[in-house]
Simulated scan of single mutants.
Amino acid sequence: MKLRKVTAASAVLLALSVAATACGGDDKKDDNSSSGGGKKITIGIKFDQPGIGQKTPQGYSGFDVDVATYVAKKLGYGADQIEWKESKSADRETMLQRGDVQFIAASYSITPERQQKVDFAGPYLLAHQDVLLRADESKIKSPADLNNKNLCSVAGSTSAQNVKKTLAPKANLQTYPTYSACLSGLQSGAIDALTTDDSILAGYAAQSQFKGKFKLGGFKMTNENYGIGVKKGSDLKAKINKALEDMVSDGSWDAAVKKNFGPANYKNEPAPKIGDIKS
């Protein structure tokens, strides 16, 4: 009887040991692991910028989405392991600091002010402030030609204020709630020019319903160095930089530019070197 009791107790202990080992193995898979190989990775993107980052009934699309997907793959995550989270401009630093996302690729310009709060990998795209014009527009050939013209941007935009203060102080600045509203005004003739980053403008102009209706001015009024934001001190920065270098070297970067901006005849800058931030 004693032998049976000892054997039964040993069996129980063995079962518990196996269960504990199995649980321990599962613990190694962190849903939000920053080192790759976990169950999922959460990435911040824009949901409302065609050509950059857009949520559609078919899924997510845009240049930033393609870049983020490539980077995630290099970190060990398949496309089905990515959880996309909307990152509005005003929320980006807070989302990174709280750990809501592992990284953000959302037309996120690298600035000294932002670098005090978060770290940036990249840059991975050099954009410029520009204007979008109707395809048949022939009188607006430089920023100065925007004087006495109806210039549109979204409420609170620094792009429009930059034109108004320094480049065309007599421009009739009108602010709309969204870029889409500006685009409708441009199409109808109520607006003469829409201003923001050229990459964002190219994304809108590249939509099938607008093909051939708009053109970029090509003014290059500012430099906007798009970077991938990570939490301050994160080891992801170096890993993402390596992934971005690979994306350029294997041709995936050029393919993503052509796919997302090509229909707008976007004359993009060459892929920037990592750490080369143009002022």
Rank of each mutant, 00 (worst) to 15 (best):
R98S: 06
L133F: 13
R134V: 10
T111A: 12
L132N: 02
R98H: 05
H128Q: 06
Y124H: 09
I104Y: 11
S107V: 13
A106K: 09
Y124E: 04
S109W: 03
F120R: 04
A135T: 14
D100A: 11
S107T: 14
Q102R: 12
L125N: 01
G122V: 09
P123K: 09
H128T: 07
A121V: 13
V131I: 13
I110V: 15
L132S: 05
D119L: 04
D100N: 07
V118N: 01
I104R: 01
P123T: 05
R98M: 12
E113I: 11
I110H: 04
A105D: 09
P123I: 03
D100S: 12
Q116I: 10
T111W: 11
A106P: 06
D136Q: 14
G122Q: 06
R134F: 07
I110G: 02
R114N: 02
P123V: 03
A106Y: 15
Y124L: 06
I110E: 06
L126W: 13
E113L: 05
G99H: 14
Q129N: 12
Q115A: 08
G122H: 10
D130I: 01
I110L: 06
K117T: 08
A135P: 00
S107N: 14
H128M: 04
F103M: 03
D130R: 02
Q102L: 00
V118T: 10
V101Y: 01
S109K: 13
A135Y: 09
D136W: 03
R134G: 09
F103L: 11
L132K: 06
D119G: 11
Y124G: 08
A106G: 10
E113F: 05
L125K: 05
S109Y: 13
I104P: 02
S107D: 14
L132F: 03
L126T: 00
